[in-house]
Design a protein around this nucleic acid. Sequence first.
DNA 1: CTATAATATGGCATCGTTTGCAGGATGCAG
DNA 2: CTGCATCCTGCAAACGATGCCATATTATAG
Lengths: 336, 336
Amino acid sequence: MAELKQTEIARLAGVSQATVSRVLNNDPQVNEEMRQRVLAVVEALGYVPDARAQSLRAQRTRLVGLVMHRDPQALAYDPFFSALVAHIISTARQFNYHLCVDAARSVKGHRAIYEELLRTRRVDGLILVESETNDERIARLTEQGFPFVLIGRYQPEDAIYTVDNDNVGAAMIATEYLIQKGHCRIAYIGGPAGLTVTRDRLQGYRQALEQHGIAYNPSYVVYGDFSSRGGASAMADLLMLNQPPTAVLALDDVLALGALREAQRRGRRVPDDVSIVGFNDTPLCTMVEPNLTSVAIDIPTLAREATQRLIDLIEGRPVEPKRQIVPAQLVRRSSA
Amino acid sequence: MAELKQTEIARLAGVSQATVSRVLNNDPQVNEEMRQRVLAVVEALGYVPDARAQSLRAQRTRLVGLVMHRDPQALAYDPFFSALVAHIISTARQFNYHLCVDAARSVKGHRAIYEELLRTRRVDGLILVESETNDERIARLTEQGFPFVLIGRYQPEDAIYTVDNDNVGAAMIATEYLIQKGHCRIAYIGGPAGLTVTRDRLQGYRQALEQHGIAYNPSYVVYGDFSSRGGASAMADLLMLNQPPTAVLALDDVLALGALREAQRRGRRVPDDVSIVGFNDTPLCTMVEPNLTSVAIDIPTLAREATQRLIDLIEGRPVEPKRQIVPAQLVRRSSA
DNA sequence: CTATAATATGGCATCGTTTGCAGGATGCAG
DNA sequence: CTGCATCCTGCAAACGATGCCATATTATAG
């Protein structure tokens, strides 16, 4: 059983081992009769070439790498992560690639992992997520000419292959939806102020207001962390204003949920007194009453595009636009 | 840059390539002076051995495989999955292994993936999750002598390496906690009736009742699906009984959440009128009011034990107990 | 001073594929 | 019947690292 290699197939089929290899690689040069003879033996024994030998010979592992930036604890309950992984896997599979996932908790750890993956040639290319400004990984990979694609946080000035969701556009759509519903006192609850995603969506929010001639009111913009508690305290602040908003756009479903609960605790009815829209369309949306309207990030597309680009890059095919923006979509439920 | 192999290091250090290999593998036979000379060059060039060549030569890829049973969509938002992956990764890393994750949507797909991973020798061993009764994968792997470890759903009669959480014990702990709080009308909301996890926890629930001399009341046992809605309708049924329960043990935080919301909708106060305990200690617990008491499945331990066992198996070390049960822990919050 | 052992190093085959190259077989035309 | 082109097929050299075996060097004892 263990000695199932091409030489064995060759011996049984009465041909040379090179011919077996050619048959398996669909070399058009081989005679039809030979091909059948070899294939018969291959089928009978259920032979499949050894990936390890192929990797060495071809200098290619058919493995793409994904390194999670955060530590295992933090990403443990991250729905974005699992969805991404799932879709990367299924896309990769279509091209006969597999996925190698890694994660590191410390910054040193990342550095080490990247260096290792790069130099051991364990993977053919990398998908990066959650990059930081001036991410040193990017410089390193670029310098090495190692194939990689970045998901999220694209900087226009980067000459890098990137796939990102359209945060500005998504926030615009959501804000416009609220405006169309007749709201003009609309608040924005962001995440930590430094993050690109917070900034981008704020920009979309402001653009929508501007386009509809609604004045931008800085006291309607509050920042929280990514917790339900953060959403609650942001909402508390908003409701204590003289003219509290009638609608709230939250950066995140979790923030939106906190805000929703805080509003209800203070006796406001949702959506009658205050409308709430979240982001990401997580399962949370249908677990609360009223069900949360949310902007769905198109994770399948994000993952598919990134994976496909990476494989194109690995196999040396030209990749046309360096950056691609994936549109988001509003999922209307009853909280707005 | 590309030609960074041992022959190159050897040339620069003025030794043979075999010596370079020995130095890198800490062969005690090499002279200290040589070792330093070689290491200097290795450090200077940042050389790391090629994993592909090592894989072929050693007949070992240092890759463990994890194949998700469900389709990408279904596992996309599964917190159990992401936590598991994260902890497998970090454990594997300690032993210098990496993780290759796969998933297939159809049953045919699984079969194909398993056959491929088995025969191409792309991974050294497999971690299986969510096995079914009479899982054909298990027979196949056993027959091939391929190293694998099963997480969850252990059958005592299986002669297989398994790690599972102690569902019976966990349900007992939770039920006893409720009994100690003075409850004697305690209900159980299960998942689909056929699942082992539903059965095991029901058993723990009944054992706890019995131990404290509380009669088992079949009308206090209701089954739902794994949705928030399922929990709500189960709770509705329970509250319409003549003697509604004063405490509910739900199989799942999502079910518990649905039950909680339904109780509140019907004007019951939690925990004053009815106490609720969930399972899994998901982030949901702290997102609802009152915060949900929940039995925490020890995913880190589950993942760590499984990974460690698999690696022991791969490297031919003896693995003492074939089955290991990981205890669960009650996380007390305010819903009970 | 020689014989033997101990130690350190290099040479070489090997892991299972792929692929360039050479050459044998066949066909066709002159 | 010979010469040449056209197909195939097999041989053998990689891919990069490892470990067995042989051998050079030095130490130790007789």
